[in-house]
């Protein structure tokens, strides 16, 4: 969920944190064991706690790499903290010194939380994060990612959609429709098509264009064909909807009306096909079964020399 940005007091108080704890992670783990309100020990089953990989928090400043006054604070705060406070065990009645924490209830600005993650995760597929729709909507990294767990749900093909549905509720409902991509059963996940950390297009797609994204699984429709169907070459979403439809093949509506939105040629394409063409005395081949595709089956384009009308 988008978080409201809370900027009051956070930066000045953070700036009062002035050096690292004397005993590193041991300081934190005295309290944050499995029985605490905020258990953290599962971090040791994650990539972040790989001490031999010096890029990771536990190859460096341990818990304080992310939560404490780290070199990243300079990036985050603009000023290097001076000397002073030590993060130690909080005694009874003593207030915890402010520290950078993450997630929905964090008091730190979303941008400050994210800058900490971006300190290491700014390359590769995250290059486009800044200025992306999610960044622009004040989504923090921790809105979607869980760090202190061996299996971050958003990185699991089966569990990922539930994370996305927290905000994208309309899409959850769409995936229960009769015609859909197989997210419900874990065969696909949102990130098979979408780049949640930013991409060029309007809907955060993995590939530079919508059709390229579709062709990565449907390469047989890529062509280019000798006889192209203009809308298919231009934009799959002119006829199809990606998440779910009550019509077969994820179509936006039924043929013949789907086709008649663009085809009004003299003769059978322009005829109103009414309910009188349903079963009964005169069932219509233009209306039933595949309707127009009963004859014009090559709607994605044809490579047959006689395929101009998508019938070969």
């Amino acid at each position: 969920h988008a978080q409201q940005v809370e900027q009051v007091d956070t930066e000045p108080t953070l700036a009062t944190l002035q050096k690292y704890s004397e005993k590193g992670a041991d300081t934190c783990l005295k309290c944050h064991d499995e029985d605490s309100e905020f258990p953290v020990l599962n971090i040791f089953k994650t990539k972040h706690a790989m001490a031999a990989d010096t890029r990771t928090p536990f190859g460096g400043l341990q818990c304080e790499s992310c939560h404490g006054p780290a070199v990243n604070n300079e990036w985050m705060q603009g000023d290097q903290p001076e000397d002073g406070h030590t993060v130690n065990k909080v005694k009874d009645g003593e207030q915890r010194p402010p520290m950078l924490n993450f997630g929905l209830k964090s008091k730190q600005p979303v941008a400050a939380q994210n800058r900490m993650c971006l300190g290491c995760h700014q390359g590769n597929t995250h290059i486009g994060w800044q200025g992306s729709q999610h960044e622009n909507s004040d989504i923090s990294c921790a809105s979607c990612h869980k760090i202190h767990t061996p299996h971050d749900p958003v990185l699991d093909r089966v569990k990922q959609p539930e994370v996305c549905y927290q905000c994208h509720q309309q899409q959850r409902a769409e995936f229960y429709k009769p015609s859909t991509h197989p997210l419900r059963f874990g065969q696909l996940s949102c990130s098979d098509c979408h780049a949640s950390h930013g991409s060029a297009g309007s809907t955060l797609l993995n590939k530079p264009t919508l059709n390229q994204t579709c062709f990565s699984c449907h390469a047989e429709k890529r062509g280019p064909f000798l006889w192209e169907h203009a809308p298919a070459a231009e934009d799959c979403s002119l006829c199809h909807t990606p998440h779910g439809s009550i019509h077969p093949a994820l179509l936006k509506k039924r043929a013949p009306l789907l086709c008649q939105q663009c085809h009004s040629q003299r003769g059978h394409p322009s005829v109103a096909l009414t309910a009188s063409g349903l079963t009964g005395s005169n069932p219509s081949r233009l209306l039933l079964l595949g309707s127009c595709t009963n004859c014009h089956s090559q709607v994605h384009g044809s490579n047959h020399p006689s395929g101009v009308k998508m019938m070969r």
């Binding site: 004397e22 005993k23 590193g24 992670a25 041991d26 020990l41 089953k45 536990f58 341990q62």
Partner: peptide, 10 residues
């Protein structure tokens, strides 16, 4: 003194 003795590395 950062011994990480409570760190339960896998």
């Amino acid at each position: 003194r950062w011994n990480c003795k409570n760190c339960e590395f896998e």
